[in-house]
């Protein structure tokens, strides 16, 4: 067991890249990703766990990056929006967001994309009521949600069709 300190060295993978840094232990994962790694797609909308703008995937599950400390990511696998598009080709979710006009100002978008990534990875169904409930932890002030729901439903449906 390491001795308690104000700083700690961590090593983890982000979007497939290994990073090793010393971090102030009080720094949240969100601030670390944004400020130390310069990956600013992960956004801060409330810093107290309600808005979902900071949602990232840690070890396969969506989490609030504002409610996790960077030191806690030591050894973990983290994915952010920067890891979605491959070689500048939009991912199916990103493409569906574009096609369905699922964003206006775009500030909430990263959080919705990552929540939807979790849903897609766990084979969630495309039933509208269920999708709406699953999105209840992400606030969007611009779109009124309908197009977000449609975009995500389209991807989940396609995925289900492929599985069959």
């Amino acid at each position: 067991m390491s001795t308690p300190g104000f700083h700690q060295r961590i090593r983890f993978s982000i979007n497939g890249r290994i990073v090793e840094r010393e971090v102030p232990v009080r720094q949240t994962l969100a601030d670390f990703i944004r400020d130390a790694l310069g990956l600013t797609a992960t956004r801060l909308g409330c810093e107290h766990g309600v808005c979902g703008a900071c949602t990232v995937i840690v070890d396969g599950a969506s989490v609030r990056a504002c409610l996790m400390l960077a030191v806690q990511a030591d050894g973990a696998e983290v994915r952010t929006v920067e890891g979605l598009a491959q070689d500048d080709e939009l991912s199916p979710l990103q493409k569906a967001f574009l096609d369905h006009h699922a964003l206006q100002c775009g500030f909430c978008t990263s959080g919705f994309l990552m929540t939807a990534t979790d849903l897609a990875a766990h084979g969630a169904g495309s039933n509208e009521t269920e999708i709406r409930e699953a999105l209840s932890g992400n606030l969007c002030r611009c779109t009124g949600y309908a197009n977000l729901v449609d975009a995500i439903a389209a991807v989940l449906k396609e995925q289900a069709a492929k599985r069959e």
Binding site: M1, P4, Q8
Partner: peptide, 14 residues
């Protein structure tokens, strides 16, 4: 809205 300073320990055992 940033946390205050604190020490941090991550024990492996209870």
């Amino acid at each position: 809205m940033k946390p205050p300073n604190f020490l941090y320990a991550r024990p492996d055992t209870l």
